[in-house]
Design a protein around this nucleic acid. Sequence first.
DNA 1: ATGAAAGCGCTAACAA
DNA 2: TTGTTAGCGCTTTCAT
Lengths: 360, 360
Amino acid sequence: MVTIKEIAETVGVSIATVSRVLSNSSYPVSQDTRARILQVAQDLGYSPNLAARSLRTDQSTLIGVILDNFTSSWAPIIIRGLQDVFHRRGYFSLVVNMPWEIHSQSDVVQNLLGHSVDGFVFVETWHTVSERKDLLNTKPYVTVHRLFHEPDPYSVIPDDVYNSSLTIDHLTKLGHKRIAYIAGHEAYFSSEERLTGYKQSLEKAGLSFDESLIYRGNWSVPSGYQCTQELIQKSELPTAIAAANDQMAIGAILAVQEHGLRVPEDIAIVGYDNDEIAQISNPTLTTVQMPLFKMGQIAAENLLCQIDKKPCETTEQLIKGDLFVRQSCGDPQGKDIHASDFMREGNGAFVNRHTLKEDT
Amino acid sequence: MVTIKEIAETVGVSIATVSRVLSNSSYPVSQDTRARILQVAQDLGYSPNLAARSLRTDQSTLIGVILDNFTSSWAPIIIRGLQDVFHRRGYFSLVVNMPWEIHSQSDVVQNLLGHSVDGFVFVETWHTVSERKDLLNTKPYVTVHRLFHEPDPYSVIPDDVYNSSLTIDHLTKLGHKRIAYIAGHEAYFSSEERLTGYKQSLEKAGLSFDESLIYRGNWSVPSGYQCTQELIQKSELPTAIAAANDQMAIGAILAVQEHGLRVPEDIAIVGYDNDEIAQISNPTLTTVQMPLFKMGQIAAENLLCQIDKKPCETTEQLIKGDLFVRQSCGDPQGKDIHASDFMREGNGAFVNRHTLKEDT
DNA sequence: ATGAAAGCGCTAACAA
DNA sequence: TTGTTAGCGCTTTCAT
């Protein structure tokens, strides 16, 4: 590996001057020598030894990214958003999976601290602020998509109330007046927010809230299926079912269809997440997508802002998502619906995981 | 941050002795002082400055992990496998997404080299050996799940021929004699391997290969749908369709059902990947799962082996997957099939992305 | 505008 | 068995 010493020798200047140029210091260096140094560095294929720089400056341009569950559908997209900003600013991230249950937190954080990371990002995490504060050794941190209830000033979260309303408003606009709701697991902060969105939309539409229309699932397909089975046993069927995620919505579709009822003709269904399955189910699912990529970007900006000790946002940031209208609520224009509709060429919405699900 | 100097002072020994103990050097240190140093290090919450160590030893305990597409279904599981081994051995990984198309490779690799990474892992990559050899600056590397055709000595790949045979054997054992095949995109190495597995299974079962039963998709649901539409136009229907991935298999199911045919009663269908959708489709999909977690572990072991300059495997390692029998080929016991079957409590196979899809 | 030199925390060669 | 010291590559203070 080529060092500044080598460059200094070939150019015929001191290492100090080379360092000034190559570390973008604001220190004055003549245009001429600057140019020559840059040229030689380029020719020799110089790239700075970051360990040495880190040792000297106590800054590593390394960020510790801690995930509760790497293999969730959302985490990779959030990470892409984070890295989009980090890489542009010359930061790399040490990504580690660290399930909440296993209490190896301190070990991992210790180790990350050993690498002199400049800050931490917690993604889809259950670690509350209070739990981790002492661990972090005063390094700045930010949380993307916190799962716990306790508020966290440095967190970026989806605007679940708004997003949920988007789906329910869609239903009320289509004339639905009796809308059942399958809520998510109650331990999750999102669950309550989404339920709140449901309530707000009903109120907006002048509909009264009916406790008996609320069911509680655990995010899984079977739980959506179970809730819908119970719901169908009841005397008066709703005309629509909203679920707190796509998985449960799929469960609802399967249950409804098993009873010989049609979606959306007899019962309309909306989900939440715009998970891959929303495009593959039959009928395809109308749902809302969280702006995960953007959430990652915003969180990264905020962290770098803290690292640079510039004034930055210190309150939770809520980010709005977008509605994806598909077949499961019926076509507002009243056209017939076939499974093949979304298979036709040119129906651009189709994306699979071979391509990037980059949010807008 | 506490340093060895501090520890040396409190214990009353030289920093060299402290270093010897704390860097697990084989150098002899008396039991007594060793114990005292360890104790003090523990009390003070010492963790080594890895940048300093790296500067001195030219080893960083950092691995560069380069992915073509972070948001694929498989990449996160492979990474979990890699990290399972890396973390146990004290290594962290710098995970970066680097699409093949964008020619920023050298920049990123340069930067990673600046962090003195001890080696590289390429995950689901299109970068061939020849393309990257010069970039890596003699650092060892390993490839997990290469996508290109050119063989690569240091790569760990799924045994696609074997895995594919698993699905076709399942069909021939159920008595199918006319089996159509929807192959994957031809640019992918896997596509040809899986097709080979299909051919081998036919031969094993004494069935002749019929070119007209082979269709070529591009991995997407719509492409599986299209191929199946064409196939159905033909005079003689097959009794089974095998697809090179689950997405295309789902497309096939939708096309078959649209023609009023039943799966599996009229046409049996198998997929490949055991993607999340395989458990959610109606009927659920019989498919095969690549041992992604294990592939990651094996690749990591191999890389560390190279880093330690120990003798290690230098030929491609093919890893076998497992068959998951669900509804789409019919129940060998001849029971009736309902959508609700897999919703029942106790049907343990159901996993969603909130839980880890850790391979065995 | 440039150079000399100290020192970040650690390891390892050499000395005792 | 323990200590002293040079030096990894870099930034930065202090001289010039």
